[in-house]
C-alpha cells in the first residue's frame, strides 16, 4: 500500500533479570501509518515466531491508554515522541519511512527488568499500600451528598487521580524519582475533606516507602510533567512538599 513505511528497529533484548541485555536490530517492512506502535510490534513478533525465533516480551493490555501497562522507552522518550499519549496510543503516522527507532525498557533501579521490555513496577503498589487510600471499611458510608465538595477542589482532585501508574515519570527522570506518581495520589486525597483525616500519616508513610524502594530525589527539572501521558501537573509535587513539611512540623 502507498504510504506504508519500512523501518529499522533497535530493540532491547534481555533473557531475564540476571542476564545482560543488548540492542538487537530488526528491519520491519510495509508498516501502515494507521497502525499503533504496539500493532507494529505484533507484526514484528509474528515474523519472529514464524521464523522460529523468540518474540519480544512487552507489557500491554487495554490498548486504549488507560490501564498504564504499556511502557516502552522510544528514541529516548517514555511512550515516544508524541505528548499526552501512552505507547499503545502512539500511531505509526508519527514516524517517517526509513526511520530508525530505538526501543528500550523503563530504566530505574526501582523498576528491575524482568525480560526484554518488561519491567517490575510493584514498587508503586507497595507505596500505595502505605497510605494511598482513605481508611473506610465497606458498609454504612453516609449519603454521598452529605459531603459537599467545591467543584474546583473536586476537579483538581480528579486531575491528580487521572494518573495511570505507568511509571513514565520515573523513566524520564534523571534521578529516577517517583515524586510525580506519589504526589498525584497524595494530592488527590489531600484535596478532599474525606482525605484530610489521615493526611499527615499518609504523606509521611508514602514518602518513606518511596525512599525505601530506591527512587531518587526530585530536582525540579519538570521532565516528568512533560512526559506524563495524562498531564499530571508539577503542582502536585509542590502540594506534596507542603503536606510533607506540615506533617513534620506537626510532629
Amino acid at each position: 500500500m502507498s504510504g506504508n513505511m519500512n523501518l529499522t528497529l533497535k530493540v532491547w533484548r534481555q533473557k531475564n533479570d540476571k542476564a545482560t541485555g543488548k540492542l538487537v536490530t530488526y528491519p520491519v517492512k510495509d508498516i501502515s501509518p494507521d497502525m499503533s506502535f504496539l500493532e507494529m510490534f505484533d507484526v514484528l513478533n509474528e515474523q519472529l515466531i514464524v521464523k522460529g525465533e523468540e518474540p519480544i516480551a512487552f507489557d500491554h493490555d487495554c490498548r486504549e491508554g488507560i490501564c498504564g501497562m504499556c511502557s516502552m522507552f522510544i528514541n529516548g522518550q517514555p511512550h515516544g515522541p508524541k505528548r499526552g499519549v501512552t505507547t499503545c496510543q502512539l500511531h505509526m503516522r508519527s514516524f517517517k519511512d526509513g526511520d530508525t527507532i530505538v526501543v528500550e525498557p523503563w530504566r530505574a533501579a526501582a523498576f528491575p527488568v524482568i525480560k526484554d521490555l518488561t519491567v517490575d513496577r510493584t514498587a508503586f503498589d507497595r507505596i500505595i499500600s502505605k497510605g494511598g487510600f482513605i481508611s473506610v471499611n465497606t458498609g454504612n458510608a453516609q449519603d454521598a451528598n452529605n459531603i459537599p465538595i467545591p467543584k474546583p477542589d473536586a476537579d483538581a482532585s480528579f486531575n491528580a487521580a487521572a494518573c495511570i501508574g505507568c511509571g513514565a515519570c520515573v523513566a524520564t527522570c534523571k534521578n529516577s524519582s517517583a515524586m510525580l506518581f506519589v504526589s498525584a495520589k497524595v494530592s488527590q486525597l489531600a484535596l478532599l475533606p474525606q482525605g484530610r483525616v489521615e493526611a499527615t500519616a499518609r504523606v509521611k508513610n508514602m514518602v518513606a516507602q518511596m525512599d525505601e524502594e530506591g527512587f531518587g530525589n526530585c530536582s525540579n527539572t519538570g521532565a516528568c510533567e512533560v512526559e506524563c501521558p495524562k498531564g499530571i501537573s508539577l503542582e502536585n509535587i509542590a502540594r506534596m512538599n507542603r503536606e510533607y513539611f506540615t506533617a513534620n512540623i506537626k510532629e
Binding site: F133, I134, V136, T138, G139, A141, Q142, D143, A144, I147, A154, D155, S157, F158, A161, Q188, L189, L192, Q194, G195
Partner: peptide, 9 residues
Amino acid sequence: DQCVAQGVP
C-alpha cells in the same frame, strides 16, 4: 456512598 467515602472524585 462507599466510593465517595473512599475519595473517588
